[in-house]
Simulated assay, not measured.
Amino acid sequence: MSSTSGRTLLHLAAAVDQPSAYDAGSYVELARLAESGGLDFVTLDDTFARPGPEALAVLSRVAPATHRVGLVPTVMTTHTEPSHVRAAVATLDWVSRGRAGWRIGVSTTEGEARLFGRRQAAPADELWREAADMAASLWDSRIGPRPPQGHPVHVVDATEGPARPVAARYADMALVRGANPAQVAAVRDRLRNEAAASGRHPDALRVLVSLIVDLGDGEYAAEPGHGGGGPRQTAQGALYRGGPVDLAELIATWHAEGVADGFHLVPAEPRRDLERLVNGTVALLQHRGLFRTFYPGSTLREHLGLARPAHQYAVTGGER
């Protein structure tokens, strides 16, 4: 991670999911808002059963309308040919000039399996092993040139056990949904230990706490800040409900305690909450010197302080 005057800076990202939005313009608006706050990246989730436009196609449309913020769609490895994943994610990296990430997803439901008709739904362990194989072999083939970052940034939700070995070995960013700071810190420690055991330097893996944030609106008062109570667990994930100032304090406290390297924030109401995050929470963290005020480079790897991966099959004379 980058630092200022010896002080480690946070990483911050936000989701731009809008379940009822079919117009790419609304996603452009949210991504530009995130970019105005200097956020590392935005995510857009996807499943085969989700109605609406494909996440990767939406962010490919967002790419030319933004300049610095990273763009990370969920792309499934299950039921998808590796060559198609490679081509699609590499294209996003090219059109964004090195700002693409890949949130690796697996499909575990029988309903989604029936959409393809080739096989039944497999156990999660098996699907994540398949995802690991794809993550390990996708970018350094001799089929064509590597994308601008070498490897687009790999993001894995490591909340559930079967995904953790993949995150530890192949992810650049691991997301952990948790309301208890001690539990999140324990997962982070385990991921770093597993990364080291696989031959990676643990600092090459960033761990972000993923929180749903509900910051209220002008029609009613937001609930009081949580203080030491923290978020509460819900069926959708850990939920913070309060004001932007209290959220900034929570983020600063958890970061100072070494709980995580940063936060992935999921607005409960996209436009309202993302605006309050950028203009309130992020501005406060910048004022305290905990988050940057400008982008250090142009690629997502540069934002995250991640090195460009070496080519597995590099030969004298340079890589392709």
Rank of each mutant, 00 (worst) to 15 (best):
D157W: 00
A252E: 07
L239V: 05
A185I: 02
F263W: 04
A174Y: 04
S198K: 02
G237M: 02
A171E: 06
L191H: 01
R192A: 10
H255E: 03
A136E: 12
A186K: 07
A221V: 13
P244G: 11
A132V: 03
A135H: 10
G161M: 13
M173V: 15
Y170L: 15
H201A: 09
A222D: 01
A221I: 09
R276Q: 15
R190G: 08
R232D: 05
L239K: 01
P148L: 13
A179H: 09
A252M: 08
G216E: 02
H255G: 04
D273P: 06
E275C: 05
G225F: 09
A268G: 09
V245A: 14
E275A: 15
H151I: 12
P244K: 12
L265Q: 06
A171R: 00
N180H: 09
L274H: 05
P162S: 13
G227I: 02
R146S: 11
P270A: 14
R177G: 14
P231I: 02
G178E: 07
L175Q: 04
P244Y: 03
V213Q: 11
R142Y: 10
A222K: 06
A132T: 11
V155L: 08
R232H: 15
R276D: 05
D157H: 01
D217A: 06
D261C: 07
G218P: 02
D140F: 15
A132F: 00
L208S: 03
H151C: 10
M134G: 07
Q149G: 09
A196T: 00
D246W: 07
E219C: 07
R169D: 12
R164I: 13
P162R: 10
Q233D: 13
P224T: 13
G218K: 03
E249G: 09
G229W: 06
A131I: 01
V155P: 01
L175V: 01
V176E: 08
A221W: 07
P244E: 10
A221C: 04
R164C: 12
D203T: 11
V155Q: 00
A221D: 12
P152A: 06
A158Q: 04
E223L: 15
L191E: 06
E130K: 09
D172C: 11
A248I: 03
G199P: 01
L215Y: 06
L211S: 02
A252N: 05
G243T: 10
A256V: 13
D214A: 14
H264Y: 15
P224W: 01
V155G: 06
R200V: 04
L138N: 09
Y170V: 13
E219N: 12
V259E: 00
A185D: 02
Q149S: 12
A158P: 04
P181N: 03
R188E: 05
D261K: 02
G178P: 00
T159Q: 07
N193M: 12
Q149E: 08
L274Q: 10
V155I: 13
R169L: 08
L239A: 01
G237Y: 11
R164L: 06
A204K: 09
P152Q: 10
R169P: 01
H255C: 06
R232N: 11
A222E: 05
R192Q: 08
A167W: 14
P148C: 14
H151F: 13
G178Y: 13
E269P: 01
T159M: 08
T159E: 01
Q183D: 14
A235P: 08
D172K: 05
R200G: 01
R206Q: 11
G229M: 11
